[in-house]
Structures are given as C-alpha cells and as structure tokens.
Design a protein around this nucleic acid. Sequence first.
DNA 1: GCCAACGTTGGC
DNA 2: GCCAACGTTGGC
Length: 137
Amino acid sequence: MSYWLIKSEPSSYAWDQLVADGRTHWDGVRNAQALNNLRAMKPGDRAFFYHSNEGKEIVGVVEVIKGFYPDPADKHGKLGMVDVKPLMPAAVKVGLPAMRAKPELSELSLLRQSRLSVCPVRTHEWTVLCAMAGISA
DNA sequence: GCCAACGTTGGC
DNA sequence: GCCAACGTTGGC
C-alpha cells in the first residue's frame, strides 16, 4: 500500500463536499508529474486530503477505491482519474507551519514542491502526519 | 532543440 | 494582491 497527498482548493471542492458525496472522481489533473503519481495509485492506497490556498492544512484521509482509468473526454488518452472516498477526518488539522517545524518532514514532497497537486508520502512521513492529526490510519 | 515570454498555482 | 516557482508555448 502506498500513501499520497491530494490537494484541493476548498472553494472548488472541499472535504465537506466529499463527505456529502460519499465518493468522487479525482480528475482535472494535468501536470505530468502529478499524473504519474495518479497513475501509480492502487485501490486501498490512502491519501491525505489537503486544502490549498484557504486553510493550507490537512483536513482528512481518503482511500482510493478505484485505480487510475482514462478520462473518456480526453482524446489523447493521457488524462485520467482515480476514485476516492472519505475515510476519516483529521482530529487535529495539520497546517503548513506545523509540518515545516518537523525535521522528519523536511523531505516531504508537499513542502518541497508546493505546486504539485498529487504528492507521494513516505511511510514514515505518513506515520508522523497521522500522529500530528491525532488519528491512526 | 533552445530559450524568452507567458500562464498558473499556491504561499504569504 | 503580490510574487516566486514552475510548466508550457512558440519563435528562431
């Protein structure tokens, strides 16, 4: 099982919306590197749900319930999506400054490449972040 | 195939 | 609202 972090601006798709929907297609990813990460997602993988721009914090955990499949609207066959469902909210939201303050997270993809919308998370990073969020996932 | 110009993302 | 980082586009 792999771990990830996916970003969304709350003004376009917030955690509460995902909870209300029960599941969603994670599409609209165009960046090549983010798409590569998306392609590597497998059912059962977990991802932090991060609110960018507003909040700038981890607000929950999602589970991948369907691995990468192509976007039928894309004629070039490059774009695609995965399906995710909410797993649990963060008991404590984890903001950027808190993450930066942790030496264990100095290599965190989110902190190193702020514009990458789908980031990998190492196992030890996942563990640290779960502890900070007050959850066990 | 290089690189300048431009667009977008996202933190501040 | 500004700007840094970075991706993309297009002229050469």
